Computed example of a mutant assay.
Amino acid sequence: MSDSLKIDEAGVSQDSKNLALLNWIGTIFFGFIPGLVLYLIKKEDAYVFDQAKESLNWSITAGLAYIAATILTFVLVGALLFPLIAICHLVFCIMGAVAVHDGKFFRVPFALRLIK
């Protein structure tokens, strides 16, 4: 068995962990695109599919928060929300990357579960 196909104690292969890690890191920079791509092409890998779905749900939630902040800029509250949303996005993506590096399933606490 090759090194890339070895499965650890949690039952997650190193390839799956690497793809899930790239997914969360890519979500920091490219938003919903990495999650959507992996969600559509990696349906046979349950771990990658689950983490792609989670990052996609988080990206949609963050996008909706940015839309709400844009609307709220007309009452001057939204300008304060943009940095807060950006920090939450960065922190949750890093938490996701750290969790999948260890082969754990990660759930963003505030994400809307629109994709099931």
Score class of each variant (00 low, 15 high):
I115K: 03
T70H: 06
A99C: 02
L76R: 04
I115E: 01
P109T: 12
F105W: 01
F32A: 15
K43S: 13
F74N: 08
I60T: 11
K43W: 09
I67Y: 05
S55R: 01
A99W: 00
G31C: 10
A52C: 09
N18E: 07
C88M: 10
G78Y: 03
F29I: 12
G11C: 11
L80R: 01
I67M: 09
Q51R: 05
M95Q: 15
L72Y: 07
A62L: 12
G78L: 08
F92T: 08
K104P: 00
G11I: 14
F105M: 10
Y66I: 13
F30Q: 04
M1T: 12
L21G: 03
L19A: 13
Y47R: 13
A86G: 03
K6E: 15
I41H: 01
K17R: 15
L72I: 06
I85M: 04
I60E: 03
L90A: 13
D3G: 08
Y39H: 15
N18F: 11
L114C: 05
S59A: 15
L22C: 08
S55D: 12
S2T: 14
V98C: 00
S59H: 07
A79D: 00
I7A: 07
L22S: 07
V100Y: 02
M95C: 11
D45V: 14
P83Q: 06
I25M: 12
F110E: 01
D8Q: 11
K42H: 09
N23S: 12
K53F: 04
H89W: 07
F30V: 12
E54V: 05
I41Y: 03
I71G: 05
L112H: 03
A97M: 01
I25C: 10
V100P: 00
K6R: 14
T73A: 08
F105V: 12
M95E: 11
G103E: 04
C88P: 00
Q14N: 12
L112V: 13
I60K: 08
V75M: 06
I60L: 15
F32P: 02
V91P: 00
I71W: 03
L22W: 14
C88S: 09
I94R: 00
D102E: 14
V75P: 00
I85R: 04
S55Y: 04
K42I: 04
N23R: 06
L22Y: 13
V108I: 06
L56G: 09
V108K: 01
K6Y: 10
V77W: 00
